[in-house]
Design a protein around this nucleic acid. Structure first.
Length: 688
DNA sequence: ATTAGGG
DNA sequence: CCCTAAT
């Protein structure tokens, strides 16, 4: 509900799926907590903090860099420059759990969720009291960090949840003393710089790695999503994504969203692997993970974990233990992009907090501080009337019902969103790509400017099932995003913190949207406001400060959690054509050879597993046996249902010899069998 | 990896 | 669709 509501605000015109399967109570609690936190305010504190940050920004950056330098050799700016420009500079750093633990707060941002599978639904428009909070964090020396902690902590008033990696935001709007751009601007600059530095540090750990990353940067163009980084997903490059992508929707409903396929080619060689997608999505199977690791940039993870880089020989492998590091890193990057990840806490606890290095960010004795700065800007009221969505090409048969068409469109959109959503900003007809600029700097302040301001929805990543709502989606590397999300999800499962329940992105679409018109965004609620609504704005980040107990408990629910964190596949009703194909196949192959059926008629439908086909057949048989009035969903032609019954009956009696018959023979047999069976359905009798 | 069934 | 058990 919460999400839905939020979404409705943000994307009023589109009814995005929401409803994470995951524990809502947990999230709700979290939200609540966040609200409270954020309301505890202390602008003054923030202000001072900001000032401090500003002052220390350079030194901090330098120090952070220095501290990281050990593991991550600096790289020339040129190498990462593009990234810096095109992607959002790292805005937050939370390298040390210990420090984070104490210096965090909560964000009003939402966390994505993982929904991830979750959905990083939270749109990062942090804002409380009309103030735009820009989260930022820095890495500082131990002394500064300590100081920072002391300063910050008090503000919290309560134990700050440790959201490692979550953009630590200190939000304390109480008096709402608008600081206005004055203080914020400078601050922003400082941060920006720092952010860049940090980013560099991270991305440049290894020149090679950085280079690998660059491809993804293309993303900034907001068009395509390149899954093919390096060699990780070789075939991915073949896939087209983004705005320029034509989504071919076939009447048979197969593979509607090609872009969702990560490795169609691979599958071509290994048909069976296709089936594995499900598992991959679901459990982030090793297959997937194995590919991911190839992205060298993942290696960058280590530094942040305070661990030494793995040996080369391990670089391309996907060792379980490495995974966490990767996750952490990814998460971090993610958060850097201002997307809050629900699992932060979990990560912290497991990856960082429990680590031996806990409390210290390294051997050098420097502690990493994780804190946020609030930038207060004059609020900008935005009334988003609509979003432009990427071009969508839908090809459906004329016989398709209107309802089906609607559903098809919904599916298309859902799929798009499921792959990650990015919001583009267009001002005066020009895309605003610099995510680091403030609205003020961008010129989004006056009423007139707002009139020329537009938002666009763009597919962000290819297979990340997690809908992302990121403030700075552009910065997220598609590939990374999906991987990251996956990892996050995975880690969540492992960690299993009840509070972290990642909210799986819900793919459920409100098909009745047209009838349940959301209230138009009549209010002037600005985006920020929308996102901050108390109950909704807070993300799924967990919340209670992770206590030792909590951490200790984590592992226990591991398994159960795991399942809860897994997003349920999006429902994809079989189209009539699919049913037709299924019936055809079953008539010829029988009911016990689903794999063959799959290969025969659904080889290209990655989203249809043989289990799905089996299930569908099961339901078809049932459907055929009940009264038409009791049937739901898109009506299946009686003719097909008759065939279903005929085939079902036939194969029920010919289980043993299904293998010897060739297709033709079977077909014939089926045909002949039908009459003998003689089924009466819906008043229609099949002639014997 | 598949198949079969229950949920 | 999901989950499991049994192959």
């Amino acid at each position: 509900m919460v999400f839905k509501k939020r979404q409705s605000h943000g994307f009023n015109n589109l009814h995005f799926p929401s409803v994470p399967k995951a524990p809502r109570s947990a999230r709700r609690a979290f939200h609540k907590r966040i609200v409270e936190d954020s309301q505890i305010c202390a602008f003054e504190l923030l202000a001072s903090l900001a000032g401090k940050l500003l002052q220390e920004s350079e030194s901090s950056s330098a120090s952070s860099n220095a501290s990281d330098a050990n593991d991550r050799p600096a790289i020339s700016d040129g190498v990462v420059k593009r990234e810096q420009v095109e992607t959002k500079p790292v805005k937050t750093e939370c390298l040390d759990l210990g420090s984070c633990e104490e210096s965090i707060f909560l964000p009003d941002y939402g966390s994505p969720s993982s929904d991830s599978r979750g959905s990083l639904n939270e749109i990062p428009l942090p804002a409380e009291s009309d103030a735009i909070l820009e989260r930022y964090s820095t890495v500082s020396n131990s002394d500064s960090s300590e100081k920072g902690n002391s300063d910050v902590k008090p503000i919290q008033g309560e134990k700050a949840p440790k959201l490692e990696g979550v953009p630590p935001v200190t939000v304390e709007p109480c008096d709402e003393k608008p600081e206005n751009g004055v203080g914020s601007q400078p601050l922003a600059d400082g941060m920006e710089t720092q952010g860049l530095i940090l980013d560099n540090a991270c991305s440049s750990k290894d020149p090679m790695k950085s280079c690998l990353r660059n491809p993804a940067l293309i993303n900034s163009d907001n068009t395509a999503i390149h899954l093919s980084h390096g060699n990780s997903l070789p075939r991915a490059s073949d896939l087209k994504h983004g705005n320029g992508v034509k989504l071919g929707i076939r009447d048979d409903d197969e593979n509607i969203f090609r872009f969702n396929k990560l490795s169609s080619r691979r599958k071509a060689f290994r048909p069976s692997s296709r089936i594995g997608d499900r598992r991959i999505r679901k459990l982030l199977s090793s297959k997937y993970w194995k590919a991911a690791p190839k992205l060298k940039d993942y290696e960058l993870t280590r530094p942040y974990l305070g661990m030494k880089p793995l040996h080369h020989k391990r670089k391309l492998s996907c060792n379980p233990d490495k995974t966490q590091g990767d996750i952490l890193y990814k998460r971090r990057k993610f958060s850097d992009r201002s997307v809050v990840i629900a699992s932060d806490r979990g990560f912290s606890g497991e990856s960082v907090c429990n680590s031996p290095e806990k409390g210290t960010s390294g051997d050098n004795g420097s502690a990493v501080l994780c804190y946020g700065v609030v930038k207060l800007l004059v609020s900008v009221k935005l009334n988003i009337k609509s979003f432009k969505i990427p071009e969508l090409f839908i090809d459906v048969p004329e016989t398709l019902t209107v309802g089906s068409l609607k559903r098809t469109v919904v599916e298309a959109v859902t799929s798009l969103l499921g792959g990650g959503l990015r919001v583009g900003l267009v001002l005066h007809g020009k895309k605003v790509r610099d995510d680091n600029r403030t609205l003020l700097q961008t010129g989004i302040t006056s009423a007139e400017s707002l009139e020329t301001l537009g938002f666009t929805l763009e597919p962000n990543s290819v297979q990340a099932p997690v809908p992302l709502c990121s403030e700075e989606p552009h910065a997220i590397l598609p590939c990374e995003t999906s991987h990251l999300i996956s990892r996050i999800v995975e880690s969540l499962k492992l960690i299993d913190s009840p509070r972290l329940a990642p909210s799986p992105p819900t793919n459920q679409v409100d098909y009745n949207s047209e009838t349940t018109d959301q209230e138009p965004l009549s209010s002037n609620a600005d985006i920020v406001a929308d996102n901050k609504s108390p109950s909704d704005s807070k993300a799924l980040v967990a919340v209670e400060p992770a206590s030792a107990e909590a951490l200790a408990v984590v592992p226990l629910n591991q398994k159960s959690r795991r399942s809860e964190n897994v997003q349920r596949r999006t429902r994809r009703p079989f189209s009539v054509s699919e049913v037709e194909a299924l019936v055809q196949a079953v008539e010829e192959l029988g009911t016990g050879r689903w794999r063959d059926v799959k290969l025969r008629s659904f080889d290209n439908a990655d989203h249809r597993t043989y289990v799905d086909l089996k299930d569908k057949w099961k339901t078809l048989v049932h459907t055929a046996q009940i009264a038409p009035q009791q049937r739901r969903g898109e009506p299946v032609p009686q003719k097909l249902l008759d065939r279903v019954l005929a085939a079902h009956s036939y194969w029920s009696q010919h289980q043993a010899k299904q293998h010897t018959k060739n297709a033709a023979a079977v077909a014939t047999a089926t045909a002949t069998a039908t009459p003998t069976v003689l089924q009466i359905t819906d008043g229609q009798a099949i002639e014997a």
